[in-house]
Simulated assay, not measured.
Amino acid sequence: MWTSRILSSTASRAALASTALMTARSRGLSQVTRQSSSSTSAISYKRTHPHKRHPALSSEYLYPAAPSAEEAVSNILYNTPPGGRGYVQQRHIFNCLVQNEPGVLSRVSGILAGRGFNIDSLVVAKTEVADLSRMTIVLRGDPETIEQARRQVEDLVPVWAVLDYTGFKVIQRELLLIKISILGPEHVRAQIKSRTPGWQIIQEETEEELSPSNALRQTHAHLKSLTELANLFQGKVVDVSGDCAVVELSAKPERIDAFIKLVKPFGILEAARSGMMAMPRSPIYDMHEHEELVEDAGSSVDATMLPPG
């Protein structure tokens, strides 16, 4: 009887131990599950999600082969702009110092028109002297004919001097004020015809109606692009409205032409361009060079003053 009691107590203890072990295992698994669901360690993540390695760069990409002579010549020819086919007359720049009195401009332009010259640009302005004005004229023609016209203009009574800056190093500047649309090129025609607010032009001209927010994003995107382009040419936006912007630019005539070509896709509403102003560069004299010449001249020895033998 005692034996049966001992065996029953032992069996009950074993059952309790197994139950406790099962409970502990279930708790451990639940803890692992909670940890894996709540946070994943970096090592386990890397093991379960292997990193896909990118293919190695080829040697042709890292060490490209030198182009052949044919490829290099083709690239140079592609990047070289084509030259003018026709004969282009040389551009001449006249700097006329004239008396500040009425009728001088008409007399000078009359002489040039009588010889068949088409004046590219003409700028007249006062100088720091009260009775003197500066007249900058740009025209094209043959050197012989240009020289005859220069002498004939210089023979006029109110003209003090006529200088030809052709072939000299001069500083050239020209001023541009250009009004550009910020609504887009498809709205320029309607914008020129009627100066209505920009939102009405967009909603009337486009097939799909734009919301005010989309129209605002579009105008600001165009304005930002236009401002960045003006900054590249060292220009600035001097006026902004709801449908256009005015850009001021002072540069060489070639850069002015390039800027106009670049902003043409935006839509040019109006452009005002001054004539070219020119001034020769000042020469630079080296004072040390003059001192060396003086020293060399003083160190020369006269052979007649030396003793005989």
Rank of each mutant, 00 (worst) to 15 (best):
F94Y: 14
F94M: 11
C96P: 01
L97S: 04
V98A: 15
V98Q: 01
Q99I: 02
N100A: 15
N100T: 08
E101A: 12
P102I: 02
V104Y: 01
L105T: 13
S106M: 06
R107A: 15
S109M: 09
S109R: 06
S109E: 07
G110P: 06
I111C: 10
I111W: 10
L112D: 04
G114V: 09
R115A: 15
N118F: 06
D120E: 13
S121E: 05
V123P: 05
V124A: 12
A125I: 07
K126R: 15
K126W: 03
T127A: 03
T127W: 04
E128W: 02
V129S: 12
V129R: 14
V129D: 13
V129H: 12
V129I: 14
A130N: 14
A130E: 13
A130R: 13
D131Q: 14
D131C: 08
L132M: 15
L132F: 11
L132N: 05
S133G: 03
S133K: 01
R134W: 00
T136E: 03
T136C: 13
T136P: 00
I137P: 00
I137C: 07
I137D: 01
V138F: 00
V138M: 01
L139I: 06
R140S: 11
G141C: 00
G141T: 00
E144I: 10
E144Q: 08
T145D: 11
T145F: 06
I146Q: 04
I146T: 11
Q148N: 11
R151G: 11
Q152Y: 08
V153L: 10
V153P: 00
V153Y: 00
E154V: 00
D155T: 08
D155W: 01
V157W: 03
V157K: 10
V159R: 00
V159L: 08
V159Q: 02
W160D: 07
L163Y: 06
D164A: 06
Y165E: 09
Y165P: 08
T166N: 09
G167S: 10
G167P: 07
G167V: 05
F168I: 05
F168M: 12
F168T: 12
F168A: 14
F168Q: 15
K169F: 11
K169L: 13
V170W: 03
V170D: 02
V170K: 07
I171E: 10
Q172H: 06
Q172N: 10
Q172W: 00
R173W: 03
R173A: 15
E174R: 12
E174K: 06
E174L: 03
E174P: 05
L175Q: 07
L175G: 08
L176T: 06
L176M: 10
I178H: 03
I178F: 05
I180D: 08
I180V: 14
I182V: 13
I182L: 05
L183V: 09
G184M: 05
G184N: 05
P185V: 04
P185G: 07
H187K: 11
V188N: 00
R189A: 14
R189L: 09
R189D: 09
R189K: 12
R189G: 03
